[in-house]
Amino acid sequence: MSVLSSRIPLAGGRARAANQANEPPRPRSWQAAVFLAPFGVLFLFLWAVPVVRGFYLSLTDVNVAEGTGGFVGLANYADLFGDGDFRAALGHTVLFVVLNVPVLVAAGLILALVLNRDLSGRNLLRAAFVGPYLLPGAAVALIWTLVLDPVDGSLNSVLEAVGLPAQQWLTEPGQAMGAVVLLTLWWRVGFPLLILLAALQDIPKQLYEAARIDGASRWQQFRYVTLPGIAPVLGLVVLLRLIDSFKVFEQVYLLTQGGPSGSTRVVLQMLYETGFRDFRTGYAAAIGWLLALIILVVTIVHQVVSRRSVKS
């Protein structure tokens, strides 16, 4: 009920006094502005100014070590389209996204479905799958360097114990990206698991009861009750994983440093090396902005596809 409709029509001043007593006090705008000012200052200097400066930097060929460089317009972006290293890095990044997102979301959904049931030890299992998500990247890299060691690693020990051949993992160009996806799955599955578990718990149980009464099988219940029920959340999880996967850097840099033979070198590593190893900060800024543009396009496409599927 709106404030207007809550007013009781009384006679004269008593009406005005009664209405004023019902109205919430008006904030003093200057006080609100002053309390918001610290956030505003931080937002301005830690986000807005760097973003604008970064874009301007991408229009220069500044080298901070040499102290040289000037405005070059869109030359950096033109060079990027012709840069074989960038194309290769983008290819490796897209490969990671294509491998990582479906696997991670599917694993998160399956785990959420399983851990939403009444199982003994359910809480312990939930903690076990979510726990790695809390680990810092350096710890994860250290653990998986040992796990994936081709000679003494525990993963190869398990494979050999079940009669399968040991693999090279991070030391084989054809396997290294797959190994990175595997460790990312272990590290990051906790996030989609948590979000989808919450979404599953929001679906009214009566819908499942009604579906069972109507004779729906488990698969039909999943398809016609569960999936529509979690669709918006699932779409959000996919979107967040897409954005995160395009920004992959930590685990690649710490585990393989882009190797072997450059087979796992991703865009953010190229950005880091260009800006902080070669000190070509203008070109590095252009890489960052181009990646941001690519992520934006992917996000828009995802939103369009999501909306169409919801409508259908």
């Binding site: 290293d85 160009p173 190797g259 033979s261 090396e273 190893r277 070509r280």
Partner: peptide, 20 residues
């Protein structure tokens, strides 16, 4: 100039030669 990147190409090539 950009010797880091130049030698990265050499390292990658040697990895391919020696291991592959």
């Amino acid at each position: 100039y950009r010797w880091n990147q130049a030698f990265q190409y050499l390292n990658d090539a040697l990895d391919d030669v020696v291991y592959q």
